[in-house]
Design a protein around this nucleic acid. Structure first.
Lengths: 157, 157
DNA sequence: CCTGCTTTTTTGACTCAGTCAAATCAAGAG
DNA sequence: CTCTTGATTTGACTGAGTCAAAAAAGCAGG
């Protein structure tokens, strides 16, 4: 497994270093993490890693397409490994920040091409679905006695 | 025109104040502005307005649905007036940050509902189209002599 | 196995966007 | 006009991330 990462790094023309391997290890275990969590987790494997090194590693990984950066509104940036070419989108929980992956909707849904592109040369469509994760729906029904009609009426796009 | 804003504020249960009216004025003139630009522009009308007042006003406007906040990756948050109910999405230029509105794709495109919602109760789908605006396409062709094949091959969603 | 060049990492200062809390001030109800 | 409540100002502070110089480590050639 570790050999795979080494190969990936070398293929990308990057040197194989301890900080890089430990960051890759963290990314492989946690699907969507912020830089600070990566630093903390990586420190269990490589105690001397500095926060800036994490940013540096992530920048290198992103630059060579090994990792991807997503920036949900209202929170720090999150990083994920890009395994293969499976481009996907994200479901974000408004309450707890939990993120789930959703398969790319293009294919069944070529409608993502904007109808009027206003002269733009569009090269990527980014979709974020906002809502409540299963756990937070339960928590809300338990503690609050209001309705959650707004949530369940459907999607506003 | 100003009376309209006063009415909107009062309807929302908000007091009509000079900072609020000047921020509304700026928002009406500029479709997508960041907080700092709003502060600078508002100062031409109301010189003593503080940056924090701008944040306060925006928070109030957003809380009552008069304005909307968007947070494109890699830049400060932008604010726009929400006229009527026309929910729309955004085209963002990778080069210059220019933003254009795109009509909501739901209606012709009910496919925005994720196929597998992983137990989430989804209440909003947010779409951002990334690319190059017309101006930056011209600028790039003029100054760089490489290809821009990646850009024009189509949308990756 | 060394040597030396180059890329990474470390260290530490710094920026930018935004928040928080206490004190002052103004809107507008009565 | 006065009083109460809500809004703004002032000023300190946080969190996320960048930048640059110095130290350290990777790895290619001998």
């Amino acid at each position: 497994m570790e050999t795979t990462w080494e190969k990936q790094l070398r293929t990308a023309g990057l040197r194989v270093t301890r900080p890089r391997l430990s960051v890759l290890g963290v990314l492989a275990e946690h699907p969507h993490v912020d830089a600070d969590t990566i630093a903390t987790a990586a420190r269990t494997v490589h105690p001397s890693i500095s926060p800036q090194a994490v940013y540096g590693v992530l920048k290198a990984l992103i630059g060579s397409g090994i990792a991807r950066r997503i920036e949900p509104a209202g929170g720090p940036a999150l990083y994920e490994l890009r395994v293969g070419d499976n481009h996907h989108h994200h479901l974000v929980c408004r309450e707890c920040g939990l993120i789930a992956d959703v398969d790319c909707v293009v294919g069944q849904a070529p409608c993502l091409q904007p109808s009027d592109a206003a002269g733009f040369a569009v090269d990527e469509a980014e979709v974020v679905f906002w809502g409540l994760c299963a756990g937070c729906q339960v928590a809300r029904r338990t503690h609050v006695h209001g309705t959650n009609s707004a949530i369940e009426e459907g999607v506003t796009a």
